[in-house]
């Protein structure tokens, strides 16, 4: 490893002006976090429809509206992060299809458009011009929106994979983490939105999704934390920011505890005690912690000088 030559060479950079550290900062974290909740809610609505359609009436409207709002938060922060936001239309008029940014922007736009239709249908049920049975049409559309939610969730992993400079982000792990972020935050959000409208059985079901998503995501982060350094020196250098007294070590562990470890414990407790407040706490922590986890993973590869 080249790092081991340092003792002999004592090489010190005495003049270089690398890029500013963090180019994609918390605006991009907001983007990923809001998108996870937005698409996650759609996944959960779809699962509810399959599992217990009679309970859909309690959450159809609220879940699609919250999902729509979160997707708009995602779009807003995406736009605000551009240095030339008024040129956003270039993506639609000069699309470059090898870019995951382009593919994602198009898919997210269609997704939000469909969600708008669904939300409008639910709000104006009585005056719905499109169909006589708004609920049935909603449920039919939900299938296609759920299908679309998969690539909309995944495309950010594609962007991270195309960021060749950042060795830490690998497509296989990032895509699984994106899906898990959606199932974690989606299940948490529907638990909060559904409240007493959901039966105990359904709550149990979503609690299991929450707990399992937390467990799997935690296992993957720990695998990267422990084994990532065994393959590439660059990854070792990046992970040093979350190890020992690294700059982001505290924040990394706060994220892991709040997003994954505590919700896992709380979900286990809920299954024993059936206490709704424990489940509510697990859901709130998972949503809040996810922001922290995403932020740390977004920032640390950017701290490594490239030259």
């Amino acid at each position: 490893m080249i790092h081991e030559t340092l003792a002999a060479t004592n090489a010190v950079v005495t003049l270089d002006v690398p890029l500013p550290d963090v180019f994609w900062g918390w605006f991009v974290t907001m983007n990923m976090w809001a998108k996870s909740i937005g698409t996650g809610l759609v996944f959960m609505l779809f699962l509810l429809l399959r599992k217990n359609a009679s309970e859909m009436s309690g959450v159809r409207t609220s879940a699609i509206i919250v999902s729509f709002v979160m997707m708009n938060v995602f779009l807003l922060f995406t736009l605000a992060d551009l240095h030339q936001p008024f040129r956003m239309w270039h993506i639609f008029f000069y699309p470059h299809w090898t870019s995951a940014i382009t593919v994602g922007a198009w898919m997210a736009t269609v997704f939000v458009g469909l969600e708008f239709l669904m939300a409008a249908m639910m709000i104006r049920k009585d005056k719905c011009l499109l169909t006589s049975d708004a609920n049935a049409t909603f449920d039919k559309l939900l299938f296609w929106v759920t299908l679309l939610a998969i690539p909309v969730t995944l495309y950010t992993a594609g962007i991270m994979a195309e960021a060749t400079a950042r060795e830490l982000w690998q497509m296989p792990t990032e895509s699984v983490q994106m899906i898990l972020a959606a199932t974690l935050s989606g299940s948490a959000a529907i638990i909060l939105l559904g409240g007493s409208k959901l039966s105990d059985e359904t709550k149990n079901f979503f609690a299991s999704i929450l707990g399992l998503s937390a467990l799997l995501a935690f296992i993957i982060y720990m695998s990267e934390y422990i084994f990532g350094s065994m393959k590439a020196e660059e990854v070792t250098a990046i992970l040093a920011y979350v190890k020992g007294d690294g700059e982001y070590a505290t924040m990394f562990w706060i994220g892991q505890w709040v997003a994954y470890i505590l919700p896992m414990i709380l979900v286990a407790l809920y299954r024993v005690s059936k206490s709704n407040s424990i489940l509510t706490l697990a859901a709130i922590l998972a949503i809040a912690g996810l922001w922290v986890v995403k932020h740390v993973w977004l920032v640390i590869p950017q701290l490594l000088p490239l030259s």
Partner: peptide, 16 residues
Amino acid sequence: ERCIGCAGCVMACPYG
């Protein structure tokens, strides 16, 4: 004139 300033390229170029 075409660039929208998304900084994707900044994130992708391994050489800064």
